[in-house]
Design a protein around this nucleic acid. Structure first.
Length: 586
RNA sequence: GGUCCCGUAGCUCAACUGGAUAGAGCAGCUGACUUCUAAUCAGCAGGUUGCAGGUUCGAGUCCUGCCGGGAUCGCCA
């Protein structure tokens, strides 16, 4: 059981008993929380219901609190309850509540921390969505890890999740890509191509693409006219580039359920494509011909008023209306984006999360406007912006290879420091805060390195079992035996304190998922690791707190049950983050 | 000029979406290894949460206006 959730339910129940008028005021009831007090001396749980509801109940908070407290007089799990400050209700629970965390974690295993009921509705998480014109670089990495962890987190919390990658395969950059690849194809056939002309992609990653084209087509491409050639090689090159992207993502353990092609929105006709969407918006009266005002303060030199097809984005909270059709008659990128969001809505996603890079900050309003417009207000678009990552070496900005066409790729990053480090560090910050990634720090094996610190806690927990096997080999420490341990032995303040930290896992996870903030999981496992390290060291000062007690097998078993639960919770948390939990560190 | 993000200890960052005395790590100082890996831990010190107002029982968090840093700004994607 999750003590916080359980007691929240009890408080709600008693409130309705005391104040029947609340029973049809779900909104008011949803506002109070049961949470750990900041100051542990206030007790185990703190509830603000009396204060939150005082206005609705037209009564003063302390009076409401007193009534509630009386209701808990006979609750066997409440050791102490009182009213404090302006009307907080503070609970101190009996030790068995916290001890039961161990039993739960050991029994539920990998499912410990999952909410019992699944939230309603389907959620779409779109992340990476990098242009398929080259390998992924550092800038993509944070968004990739963030999106993946967020999806895992919500998946763990039983949300119905689809992980999606939007392939920008319709724009002019793909033509450039195809031409660049063609040049490499000529090179593969033995031509001297000299310098790569400006405007084409110079990267060496296209060399194997050129070779692949040469193998597939021989020299037949050379005799084609430009248009035919492009339409021939375009899909082939795209597929090769997407293979490259997928290989990069695989190195970080990131996968998607669906790769959605932007180009498919341009032709289709099967519902939710651009034309259909624009027609639909037109019927709704949200499209018109008009001119936009030049931006104030910084009018471009070549600004000219031009009438164009516009979408009434400003009706949905955007700053200005947005162009849908370019002067050459093709659709703008945003037009495709609107169609894409409509497509998602038609596929049943009322919750759409889009993970974007820092340079897309100005895109937030536009996308939520699109989301509202195409769904009649039903779909919610949550745009998560991942801020820049500063690469450092020894505290100095990392000097990257200056050779043209080179940048730090995701693959290089993973090869140098490992996927666990990349993932954890990227998740150990709020997504909207800039992040320093120091190569020297993250490869150290000290407490300064949070990845190591957490993994070490897990490895230590495992080593406790190795030691037990060595010191008390006759003791059965199988999961079955641990589940029979007498947990009431674990009543030392240091133990209760560790158990409380453990017991917060379920609500920490649930809150992180609801807020779309996976970094909280990283902070939680770090906190649990700290609590475990602290308990471990306490065993040095107070030998009776060591896991293995040679005089008392019952307590040894109980302690090991606790260690196993810690290990399990760390694993569950790390697994959400996609970080491994090694049994031993080298 | 508009919009968005950020501003919290000397440094890097938290603060469970409005809760009680704002917390961690690093750097600094003091301690703990014949002991389950000290790869760790305990303690001390460090703050007018950029500034000024407002909302209420209560604000780092919400609203308004400034200051500073970053990003972005009609048909690129």
């Amino acid at each position: 059981m999750d003590a916080f959730a359980v007691f929240r339910n009890r408080v709600e129940e008693k409130l309705i008993n005391l104040f029947p008028e609340l029973s049809d005021n779900k909104q008011a009831l949803s506002r109070f929380v049961v949470e750990p007090p900041r100051d542990a001396s206030h007790g185990d749980l703190s509830c603000n219901a009396a204060m939150v509801l005082s206005k609705v109940l037209k009564s003063n908070p302390r009076a409401i609190a007193e009534k509630l407290v009386a209701e808990f007089a006979n609750d066997e799990q409440v050791e102490k309850i009182d009213v404090a400050g302006p009307g907080f209700i503070n609970f101190t629970l009996t030790p068995d509540v916290w001890q039961s965390v161990i039993a739960d974690a050991n029994k539920q295993g990998a499912d410990y921390g999952r909410p019992e009921v699944a939230p309603v509705g389907k959620v779409n998480v779109e992340y990476v969505s990098a242009n398929p014109t080259g390998p992924l670089h550092v800038g993509h990495t944070r968004g990739a890890v963030f999106g993946d962890a967020l999806a895992s987190l919500m998946d763990f919390c039983r949300y119905d999740i689809t992980r999606e990658y939007y392939i920008n395969d319709a724009g002019g950059q793909i033509t450039v890509l195809a031409n660049s690849a063609y040049l490499r194809y000529c090179e593969a056939l033995g031509d001297d191509i000299g310098e790569i002309p400006a405007g084409l992609y110079p990267g060496k990653y296209l060399i194997p693409v050129g070779q692949a084209l040469a193998e597939k087509f021989g020299d037949s491409l050379k005799s084609m006219d430009e248009t035919e050639r492009e339409t021939t090689i375009r899909p082939v090159v795209l597929e090769l580039m997407m293979d490259l992207v997928r290989d990069d993502l695989k190195k970080l353990g990131i996968k998607h359920d669906l790769f959605f092609s932007e180009a498919s929105l341009h032709g289709g006709g099967n519902g939710g494509d651009i034309k259909e969407t624009l027609d639909w918006l037109g019927e709704e009266g949200l499209v018109y011909q008009g001119t936009l005002e030049a931006p104030k303060g910084k009018t471009p030199e070549d600004w000219e008023d031009r009438e164009q097809t516009l979408f009434k984005a400003s009706d949905f909270g955007d700053d200005t209306d947005r162009a849908l059709v370019k002067s050459d008659g093709t659709y703008t990128y945003f037009a495709a984006d609107i169609a894409y969001h409509r497509n998602k809505y038609l596929r049943g996603f009322n919750s759409q999360i889009v993970v974007l890079g820092a340079d897309h900050a100005g895109y937030i309003k536009r996308l939520s406007a699109a989301g509202k417009a195409v769904s009649g207000g039903e779909a919610e678009v949550d745009v998560k912006i991942c801020q820049l990552v500063n690469l450092l070496r020894n505290g100095e900005p990392a000097k990257m290879s200056k050779r043209s066409g080179n940048f730090v790729t995701m693959a290089q990053l993973v090869d140098e420091v490992g996927a666990d480090v990349v993932r954890f560090i990227m998740l150990f910050r709020r997504n909207e805060a800039q992040l320093d990634f120091d190569f020297d720090l993250v490869t150290q094996q000290t407490r300064e390195n949070p990845v190591f610190y957490v993994q070490y806690a897990h490895a230590r927990a495992c080593s406790a079992f190795r030691n037990a096997a060595r010191d008390v080999p006759e003791l059965d420490v199988s999961l079955e035996a641990l589940q029979k341990a007498d947990l009431s032995k674990l009543s030392h303040p240091a133990e209760i304190s560790l158990l409380k930290t453990m017991g917060q896992f379920p609500r920490a996870i649930e809150a992180a998922a609801a807020a779309h903030e996976p970094h909280r999981v990283a902070f939680y496992v770090h906190e649990l690791a700290a609590a475990f390290h602290a308990f471990w060291t306490k065993g040095k000062e107070e030998p009776q707190l060591r896991f293995v007690n040679h005089e008392d097998r019952t307590i040894t078993l109980a302690r090991l049950a606790m260690v196993n639960a810690v290990r399990q919770i760390l694993r569950n948390g790390l697994s959400i983050l996609g970080v491994s939990a090694p049994e031993e560190l080298s």
